[in-house]
């Protein structure tokens, strides 16, 4: 995915659930420069929260590991977010993307990928068992005419 970017942030954190709020908040702050509506911002925060939670719950179920996030502004007001881990990987990505499919038990709903897909314009998932998972999401923020 070659695309020219005009701005980006990179950050990395330990797969502790306490960091979920920080991760979605940081991406939302970065996204603010695209002047999103509250609804667009909510969608972005939700999608990031789902991707990060997946990494915490599924990539590193019995251990703590690194989670890396890169957010970029691309041409045409597009926000791209990459959430990457070096954990267990997903044996069958197609299956994992099915609504309600979960290996997380009663505490999870199995809707993470479905929400990422519905709330973002594009979702790419690359996963290698034993190596990790990289989730790339894109959302175009509709340009708004602001205060003249």
């Amino acid at each position: 995915m070659k695309a020219r970017s005009t701005n980006y942030i990179i950050f990395e954190f330990l797969s502790r659930s306490a960091n979920e709020g920080f991760a979605r908040g940081a991406v939302a702050c970065f996204a603010a420069q695209l002047d999103p509506t509250l609804e667009e911002l909510g969608d972005i925060k939700t999608a990031v929260s789902e991707a990060v939670t997946n990494a915490i719950v599924h990539a590193y179920p019995d251990t703590l590991g690194r989670i890396f996030i890169k957010a970029r502004v691309l041409e045409d007001n597009i926000l791209e977010i990459v959430v990457q881990d070096w954990g267990k990987g997903i044996p069958d990505v197609e299956q994992a993307r099915q609504p309600l499919y979960t290996t997380g038990g009663e505490e999870r709903s199995g809707m993470g990928f479905t929400i990422m897909e519905s709330f973002m314009d594009r979702l790419y998932v690359r996963s290698v068992p034993g190596k990790g998972t990289k989730v790339t999401m894109r959302r175009r923020i509709k340009p708004r005419r602001t205060g003249l």
Binding site: G42, T46, S49, E50, T53, R108, M111
Partner: peptide
Amino acid sequence: SFMDSSGIAVVLR
């Protein structure tokens, strides 16, 4: 102020 799919599991339970 925010809810993700974790809320779905809470409601269903």
